[in-house]
Design a protein around this nucleic acid. Structure first.
Lengths: 95, 95
DNA sequence: TAGACTTGTTTATGATATAAACAACAAACA
DNA sequence: TGTTTGTTGTTTATATCATAAACAAGTCTA
């Protein structure tokens, strides 16, 4: 096999976008990610949960101005997985 | 949306590997692709058909030494799509 | 001619992605 | 006050997709 396997958790447009976003920042709020990715709330909620379940991100729930506030932060496992994914997909991109 | 959409036809490990392989060569036989990608015959058959239906590759069926011989070649549409995909996914890989 | 091999296709099913529907609470307004 | 609109997310229903197992059609060989 000349092609490294691609982490199926990251090989999804929205999840990859989320992790890519988080790599650049300390943390990000639900609505910020929503806007940057253009996703629907439902889809984003599902994919954030998946990333959390996988240990790629941590999710903190709080309140601000009386409204729920969900904050996401990349976990070490997520960082490693992202770096690994970036390395792996290079094999596919330059023939 | 800060992230360009990723062509769903190419955003699949096996199909991306196939197209990536084909970019480098004039054409490739079924078994060659099979070996290079490590896929199963069934899965490869399905994904090649999908790439053909999309107009990304052409498939030529013939015989060699009395056995069926399936040969694949990248079509112009496939080349463009691949270049576009490579460009698009860069947004996701460097934060 | 029976059995094993080659080359691929079809199909069955389990997983996945996504949007629609829902929920819980807050604020505005009548 | 109470009802209606807005905010922030979650749950669920469905349609699609990826994959391997089963199948098919022909070939070789003993």
């Amino acid at each position: 096999m000349s092609f490294a396997p691609l982490d199926p958790i990251l090989h999804n447009q929205l999840r990859l976008a989320v992790v890519s976003l988080l790599v650049g920042v300390e943390s990000a709020e639900f609505n910020f990610i929503l806007e940057k990715t253009g996703a629907t709330r439902g889809n984003l909620s599902v994919q954030l949960t998946k990333l959390k379940d996988e240990g790629y991100i941590t999710i903190t729930k709080g309140y601000r101005d009386n409204y729920p506030l969900t904050t996401c932060k990349l976990a070490p496992k997520g960082i490693k997985a992202f770096e690994q994914y970036v390395k792996a997909i290079q094999d596919y991109l330059k023939p």
